[in-house]
């Protein structure tokens, strides 16, 4: 049985002449915590909003629980929570009114959990939403989303305005929630250290497509800088075709492994026609490499 909770096939989305999503395919399995990466303007928010049915796609098929949004029953829709990147609106409401008001629209709303989280994260429930700082507003929306006890949680840059302490607390809460229920989370972020702590999968959106989608651990084990020795400048041969950022120099070439290859890194190095030295790189360095690739 297909356990994909989100299934995207060949979707396209353009704004005027600018193609944002270009024949994008992606599958997210039940229980996955997926970090969606991509440069500013890569289309992360558009993709997440399309998953949430907040933006109409030009073509393609997008299914949640193997159903299109049109056929998704209200009961199932109530199991989805979402935090937008720009959390606007409701400025005139007090925090507790905001939470109880929106909570009323979710059958699985956990009032006690909501109060506990508000207390734990130091949110003044009598303050007006409009009087909260950027970070506090984000916390408020995250609390609202978590208190739904959703089966699918979509978060668009949920920690962008949070201080490191709050980020840690948020991540810890997310991990707890994922452990106690089979919640599926998709979140976009630019803070790579956070995704390492919480996500089990990472996906990179580039050129309108999910270019890389792998398990975090698998990816971390694969990515490396390679120094390939040769008598003179070395051109990228077929053997090295999977390597990125190829640069020839007088004594060979340098390149980067940016995604798991068809064989393990060790066997790739051992079977190579040239002598290769490798250096492991962090996810942050990897992210910079893949983003700058092809510039």
């Amino acid at each position: 049985m297909n356990s994909a909770i989100i299934s995207i096939e060949n979707i396209y989305k353009s704004y005027q002449d600018h193609k944002v999503l270009d024949n994008l395919n992606w599958q997210i399995e039940r229980g996955d915590i997926v970090a969606l990466l991509g440069k500013n303007g890569a289309g992360k928010s558009t993709l997440l909003e399309s998953i949430m049915n907040l933006r109409d796609i030009d073509s393609g098929e997008l299914k949640l629980w193997e159903k299109s949004w049109k056929n998704l029953p209200q009961s199932q829709r109530g199991k989805i929570a979402y935090v937008a990147q720009d959390t606007v609106g409701f400025e005139w409401m007090r925090v507790h009114v905001f939470l109880s008001y929106l909570g009323g629209f979710f059958p699985s709303w956990d009032e006690q959990y909501c109060n506990d989280l508000s207390h734990k994260w130091g949110l003044d429930s009598n303050k007006k939403v409009g009087d909260l700082s950027g970070g506090q507003t984000q916390i408020l929306h995250v609390i609202q989303a978590l208190s739904v006890k959703p089966e699918l949680l979509i978060l668009d840059e949920p920690v962008a305005h949070l201080d490191p302490n709050m980020r840690r607390q948020f991540i810890s809460e997310l991990v707890d929630l994922a452990c106690e229920s089979s919640i599926t989370v998709v979140f976009s972020s630019h803070i790579i250290s956070d995704l390492e702590r919480v996500a089990n999968k990472v996906a990179l959106l580039k050129n309108g497509q999910i270019e890389i989608s792998h398990e975090v651990e698998e990816l971390k084990a694969s990515i490396a800088h390679l120094k390939i020795a040769a008598g003179g400048p070395l051109e990228q041969s077929e053997y090295y075709a999977e390597l990125a950022n190829w640069q020839s120099h007088s004594q060979g070439a340098t390149a980067t492994v940016v995604k798991p290859m068809s064989e393990s890194l060790e066997s790739f190095i051992n079977n190579a026609p040239n002598k290769i030295e490798h250096t492991k790189i962090s996810l942050e360095d990897w992210y910079l490499e893949v983003c700058n690739e092809g510039r």
Binding site: M52, N53, L54, W69, Q74, F90, W92, L102, F105
Partner: peptide, 18 residues
């Protein structure tokens, strides 16, 4: 218009009814 800003307006029928 202010209340329509929330994503529930688009995906939650109950919210729209209310």
């Amino acid at each position: 218009k202010s209340l329509q800003l929330n994503y529930l307006w688009k995906i939650n029928q109950h919210y729209r009814n209310v």
